[in-house]
């Protein structure tokens, strides 16, 4: 069946071309196909296969490292992920924590990002054309900064003794302040760890430029006639934003939400540098968990299984989000 589909595709691809053209096409695409096979498809398949083995690069295995010291374990990794008892192995407990923290992070980041960027884009679009560019550049600059640099900078801001935040609070209180924003696991707001909030702030600061650009582009695409009509009908600033702009931007909001959600699920470097998953695993996101088990503790089979779960999670949420918010607009 698969072979027949492949043959059909190849036949369709080469249909109507003479021999020289076929040779040229085959020669031109072969390096790309080989590149993809070796660097994308093969690692992907190998990564999926790893999830079914108790694989550690320290152990000697057979073909591609599988078998012998890295035995086949079937679905054992996935089964153990369903162990919710108190005596579950640490990697399983940390996987559960990772899922919880990643979901919480995404749930915080997506609405906050949209709540900040959408009105901001509207404001920037409303101001004088001469200064628009300055604001656009200013808000997009953090996107260009390397994540590790951003994390180090925010780490300094939240530092308990030398941090800017404590210094500002100290200025107001007249006392030395030593709150360990990133290290004190007892600091929570509505049950959410303050350390996670701190990472959300740093992440939003860096990431919001993307959505801002997307929203500005979308705002520029809304016909002026619609806005003029609303004004003639007496719509004020807020009504214009809430009843005209936001509904017309729904497809863009959906796109931004999906992209932000995917990006939030993949957060890693900021967390690793700012908290390394601490305090007490409160910021242990799934990708950091995967990295730790794959490269620090060399349990690559387990890490591959967690990666597959993470992929399915991101895929499902993006799929549901897309289906739920699917609308067709014409203007």
């Amino acid at each position: 069946m698969t072979v027949s589909i492949q043959n059909n595709l190849l036949r369709r691809f080469f249909r109507g071309r003479n021999s020289a053209e076929k040779q040229f096409l085959a020669g031109a695409i072969s390096p790309l196909v080989l590149y993809m096979t070796f660097w994308t498809i093969f690692p992907l398949l190998w990564g999926i296969a790893l999830a079914f083995f108790d694989y550690s690069p320290r152990q000697t295995g057979g073909f591609l490292g599988f078998g012998e010291g890295n035995p086949f374990v079937g679905l054992q990794h996935f089964e153990s992920m369903l162990n919710f008892t108190a005596d579950a192995p640490l990697e399983v407990q940390q996987f559960h924590i990772g899922i919880r923290v990643t979901l919480l992070f995404a749930v915080l980041v997506v609405p906050l990002n949209l709540l900040v960027t959408l009105p901001l884009a509207f404001l920037i679009e409303s101001i004088n054309d001469k200064v628009k560019g300055i604001f656009r550049t200013l808000f997009f600059l953090p996107v260009l900064a390397p994540s590790v640099g951003v994390a180090i900078m925010w780490g300094f801001i939240f530092h308990p003794q030398r941090g800017l935040l404590n210094a500002i609070i100290g200025e107001f209180t007249g006392k030395l302040v030593g709150v360990a924003w990133l290290r004190d696991s007892s600091l929570t707001v509505w049950g959410i760890p303050v350390a996670l909030f701190a990472i959300v702030v740093a992440y939003l600061w860096q990431d919001m430029g993307y959505n801002l650009v997307i929203f500005i582009a979308a705002l520029q695409g809304i016909p002026q006639s619609i806005k003029d009509a609303a004004r003639i009908d007496g719509a004020n600033w807020w009504q214009m934003f809430a009843r005209i702009i936001v509904p017309l931007l729904m497809p863009t909001i959906l796109l931004a939400a999906v992209l932000t959600m995917i990006s939030a699920f993949q957060v890693f470097d900021i967390v690793q540098v700012m908290t390394d998953g601490g305090p007490d695993d409160q910021t242990q996101v799934l990708l950091l968990n995967i990295y730790s088990y794959a490269f620090r503790y060399q349990k690559m089979g387990w890490a591959a299984a967690v990666s597959i779960v993470m992929f399915l999670l991101v895929f499902s949420i993006s799929f549901v989000q897309t289906r739920l918010l699917r609308t067709e607009w014409e203007y």
């Binding site: 530092h159 308990p160 003794q161 360990a180 290290r183 004190d184 908290t275 390394d276 601490g278």
Partner: peptide
Amino acid sequence: VDPLLYNDEENWVGDSYFAET
């Protein structure tokens, strides 16, 4: 020592000792 302020992530022992904190 205050373990909230002195740990691997803040005031790591080598840095902290030589910075005289």
